[in-house]
Nucleic acid binder design. Structure first.
Length: 506
DNA sequence: TTCCGACAGTGGGGTCGCAAT
DNA sequence: ATTGCGACCCCACTATCGGAA
């Protein structure tokens, strides 16, 4: 009765075919063929696996626990369903001795896998399938395989909060997908923002008029209220209601029977100014209602009292938001066509201690996922001239290139490491720095993953801010560091000092 | 023919809980 | 009590494909 069940080997060979081509159309075709071969009850697992993910949120397995694997099987026999069941058992394990039990499960699973299957299994557990296709291309493949329009798949996935749960519906046809609606209590995929260097640039992209919203430095929350019941979800749709009882209580008090709100949760000091992100992160990561209280600040509304507002223009949604949510729980905003007024607002927001602004087109509906959407964030950027004190070999497409640089600020006695970065490098820069830092190497560059170098090369680094660190000796680390350019017009002796970096903390 | 939107890849720092030591 | 790992919070940037202009 198990004949016809899809083999893991089919997933693996599809994944290898997808990885072997750079053409997106060819990737989609390969994915679609595999989706088309799945039975209805296999489809959720197959959909997840083809996008390089598991259905289990946590398995307890990671890179470290998969360093030593049992000998591989000679022939492929594992079915997709068996693999899913094995991960399901692992995800349910907890308590004393669970590591041993989990290791035994992992051993049995990997021992039944061929070499190629072991490679894929390890990659999917660590989130490193790297086949050049994730959820988005799998959605395209679903549309192709089921013969339905891509926008119908995307919209259903947005409203259901997942591609996996709508995969089967795609094969029922366009009407079945269209029947997927917003359900209060079921989180929807969040709308994301692209970024721009200035308010003016953002406004130029959107046309007029715009909403200039305050960008708070906390964590994204989606609140669902149904009667007295409130659920709070994060950006990845993890339910954190139990960790934010004070937020749930506030939402419960809002004058609506059913409600879906989008916003940010953040800790605020007694002076009314926002606290550093690290404090919000600490408070929201734990269940204990400690002294630091998190407050919600909402900036959008997707549903109220039986009415979905997803397709309604932003200005009309904001009118509803203002009607339901008191001002102290909304993020401050300005609606304008005037660039100067918008820039002044952004300046005021920054002096109030906030992260920046998000510029939004007033006429746009709410649309999940799409990076190049109608929301554009603008944040100030700082720069420092630092010294490269080490570098690491890259992986994936950066294999064979020295990639991730260690950054040092000038200290009273040598250079003090304050972070690393791999961002902002072009392929040309990667080639150049591989040669340059091989010359400056203090340790054998080919004997180790990380290479120490003579602190001579100055690099201009952009970053968003400085945070307290227990990892680095100076007690500070850069947030979102990226390379602007290498500077040959400055010597290491002219680099910025650790004191300069530490002053950013105030 | 050129341009640009969308996508995937490559990793960064910090926080916690949990199980093993 | 401490430590290491896994999970998840915040994320920027470049290369590339393929459709739009």
């Amino acid at each position: 009765m198990f004949t016809g069940d899809m083999l893991l080997a089919d997933i693996v060979s599809t994944s290898n075919a997808v990885a072997a081509t750079r053409s997106r159309k060819a990737k989609v075709a390969a994915l679609a063929e595999c989706l088309g071969a799945a039975t209805r009850n296999e489809l959720p697992v197959v959909t997840a696996y083809l996008s390089g993910s598991l259905l289990q949120r946590r398995t307890g397995l990671g890179w470290r626990s998969l360093t030593a694997l049992p000998p591989p099987a000679a022939e492929a026999s594992l079915t997709v369903s068996e693999v899913h069941e094995a991960f399901e058992r692992m995800s349910r394990l907890s308590g004393s001795g669970s590591q041993v039990a989990r290791a035994a499960e992992a051993d049995a699973l990997f021992g039944a896998a061929t070499t190629a299957e072991q490679v894929w299994l390890r990659a999917v557990v660590t989130g490193e399938v790297r086949q050049g296709a994730l959820d988005s291309l799998v959605q395209e493949a679903l549309a192709v395989a089921a013969g339905v329009p891509l926008p119908a798949v995307r919209r259903a996935a947005m409203l259901a909060g997942s591609t996996v749960v709508v995969a089967g519906l795609a094969f029922d046809g366009e009407e079945a997908l269209a029947d997927v609606g917003l359900v209060v209590g079921r989180p929807v995929l969040p709308m994301l923002a692209s970024s721009a260097g200035s308010v003016e640039e953002a406004m130029a992209k959107l046309g007029e008029p715009v909403v200039v919203d305050t960008k708070l430095d906390g964590i994204r929350i989606q609140a669902h209220k149904s009667g007295s019941e409130v659920r709070i979800a994060t950006r990845t749709l993890e339910d954190i209601t139990a960790r934010l009882p004070e937020v749930a209580e506030i939402v419960a008090s809002f004058p609506a029977d059913t409600l879906v709100l989008d916003g940010e949760a953040m800790t605020v000091g007694p002076d009314g100014r926002p606290r550093p992100f690290q404090e919000t992160a600490s408070r929201t990561a734990t269940r204990s209602a400690a002294d630091a209280v998190v407050s919600p600040y909402f900036f959008d509304i997707l549903h109220v009292d039986g009415r979905d507002l997803i397709d309604v223009a932003l200005d009309q949604r904001l009118a509803e938001l203002d009607r339901i949510v008191p001002e102290r729980h909304r993020s401050p905003r300005l609606v304008t066509v005037d660039t100067e007024a918008a820039e002044q607002f952004a300046t005021d927001v920054l002096s109030a201690g906030h992260e920046g602004v998000v510029v939004k087109g007033v006429g746009l509906p709410w649309e999940a996922g799409r990076r190049g959407s109608g929301w554009i964030k603008v944040k100030p950027v700082h720069t420092l001239d630092l010294v490269v004190i080490g570098i690491e070999w890259g992986s994936g497409r950066r294999k064979g290139w020295l990639s991730n640089i260690h950054l040092g600020a000038r200290g009273p006695d040598g250079f003090v490491m304050i972070g690393k970065t791999f961002k902002g490098m072009t392929d040309q820069m990667l080639a150049w720095q591989t040669e340059r830092f091989t010359e400056l190497a203090l340790t054998d560059p080919h004997s180790d993953w990380a290479v120490q170098v003579r602190p001579e090369q100055v690099v201009e680094i952009a970053f968003d801010g400085v945070q307290r660190s227990t990892r680095y000796p100076g007690g500070v680390a850069l947030r979102f560091a990226r390379v602007v350019r290498y500077r040959d017009d400055k010597t290491a002796a002219e680099a910025d000092t650790i004191e300069t970096v530490q002053r950013f903390l105030d």
